[in-house]
Amino acid sequence: MKLYIKGDFKKKITFGYEELAHKMWTERINGKELSISHSGNDETLQEENLISLYHNKWLNDNRWSNSDIVALHSFLKMENISLEFELARVSDYRETGEYLRIASSHKDILTVDKRAFYIMAIEVATALDGIISEDDRVTWIRVDEFKERHADVLLLSFEEAHEMGLKEVFNIECVKDPIWAELKKQRAEYIKIHGERIWEDEKCW
């Protein structure tokens, strides 16, 4: 899954990654604080609009460690949801492009993560006075229209979506979203023209 956000990038996201993750999934599960993994931090989120998040399902609920689920070898239980500028990864973070992109690891994802995906889009687009495109930047809709379009998922509680995921994992094929192969190809083409990026900590060598 992927979508794009066009907004006022002079504005700053004011919330941190943990607050965002709690909105996307939940703050507590089974009496414990939600366990999440992340690439990036509050600074990258607020200064660069850059973060990757997933909640560690097997640490939050031991049912994800059930032998039947483990036997699937499905990476759907480790769904990564990434926010970044459209050209950031392609250019080794030298360029941004005009839009933000939110993308999931896989083409089809569990409802609990689809709900999280939509909430990330809503929170980021709202913070940046943005609009959203789900058809590769052909058409754009307001946040309120996006909420209405996906109300069937957004109106679910985390608990409801989570229970659905425990059943869906047996029926959804684990296929990586095509965006990642496309970005890898674009990055190779970019490097051919511009060369590898030399990072600041490499310049002293």
Results as ranks from 00 to 15, higher is better:
Lys23Phe: 09
Pro178Lys: 05
Ser52Leu: 07
Asp177His: 12
Tyr54Pro: 11
Arg115Leu: 04
Phe117Asn: 01
Leu166Ile: 01
Glu43Ala: 15
Ala125Cys: 05
Glu182Cys: 08
Val153Gln: 00
Ile179His: 05
His55Asn: 15
Tyr93Pro: 10
Ile13Arg: 03
Ile119His: 02
Ser157Gln: 07
Met120Ile: 05
Gly165Thr: 08
Ile29Gly: 06
Glu202Arg: 13
Arg115Tyr: 06
Ser37Leu: 07
Glu98Trp: 00
Asp8Met: 10
Ala21His: 01
Trp58Ser: 13
Phe85Asn: 01
Val153Trp: 04
Leu110Glu: 00
Asn30Cys: 10
Asp129Gln: 05
Glu145Trp: 06
Glu163Asp: 11
Gly40Asp: 01
Ser157Pro: 09
Val90Lys: 05
Ala127Thr: 06
Val70Lys: 11
Ser133Thr: 00
Glu159Arg: 02
Ala103Trp: 02
Glu47Leu: 12
Ser157Thr: 15
Gly31Ser: 10
Glu189Ser: 13
Gly7Trp: 00
Arg101Cys: 12
Lys23Val: 06
Thr26Gly: 09
Leu76Lys: 01
Asp92Met: 08
Phe146Trp: 04
Ala121Tyr: 00
His162Lys: 01
Ile69Gln: 00
Ser105Gly: 15
Glu86Ser: 12
Asn66Tyr: 01
Val70Ile: 13
Asn80Lys: 03
Ile69Cys: 02
Glu168Met: 08
Lys10Met: 15
Glu123His: 03
Ala161His: 03
Ala125Trp: 05
Ala88Leu: 05
Ile141Met: 15
Phe146Glu: 06
Lys185Pro: 07
Leu155Val: 11
Leu59Thr: 01
Cys174Met: 03
Asn60Phe: 05
Glu148Gly: 06
Glu43Leu: 13
Asn30Ala: 11
Asp136Gln: 07
Lys203His: 08
Ile132Cys: 06
Leu155Thr: 15
Ile198Cys: 09
Arg149Ile: 07
Ile179Val: 13
Arg142Met: 05
His106Leu: 10
Ala151Thr: 00
Ser37Ile: 07
Cys174Ala: 10
Phe9Met: 08
Lys203Ala: 13
Asn56Arg: 12
Gly97Thr: 04
Ser67Pro: 12
Lys192His: 13
Met78Phe: 14
His22Gly: 12
Met164Ile: 07
Lys77Cys: 07
His150Tyr: 10
Ile179Lys: 04
Asn80Leu: 04
Ser39Met: 07
Asn171His: 13
Lys77Tyr: 00
Glu200Gly: 14
Glu148Phe: 07
Asp108Ser: 11
Ser52Gln: 10
Asn62Ile: 09
Thr44Leu: 02
Leu59Val: 04
Leu154Ile: 04
Asp135Trp: 03
Glu84Tyr: 05
Tyr118Asp: 02
Ile13Ala: 00
Lys203Trp: 10
Glu159Phe: 02
His22Val: 13
Phe170Ser: 12
Ala21Tyr: 03
Thr44Ile: 02
Gly97Trp: 00
Ile141Pro: 11
Ser67Lys: 14
Glu173Gln: 13
Ser105Ala: 08
Leu83Pro: 04
Leu110Arg: 02
Ser91Asn: 06
Ala151Cys: 06
Trp199Gln: 09
Arg137Tyr: 00
Ile172Ala: 08
Ile29Ala: 09
Asp135Thr: 03
Asn171Tyr: 06
Trp180Ile: 12
Glu182Phe: 09
His194Thr: 06
Ser157Asp: 08
His22Trp: 15
Lys192Ile: 09
Ile102Pro: 03
Ser82Cys: 06
Lys2Gly: 13
Val138Ser: 09
Tyr93Cys: 13
Asn62Gln: 10
Phe170Tyr: 15
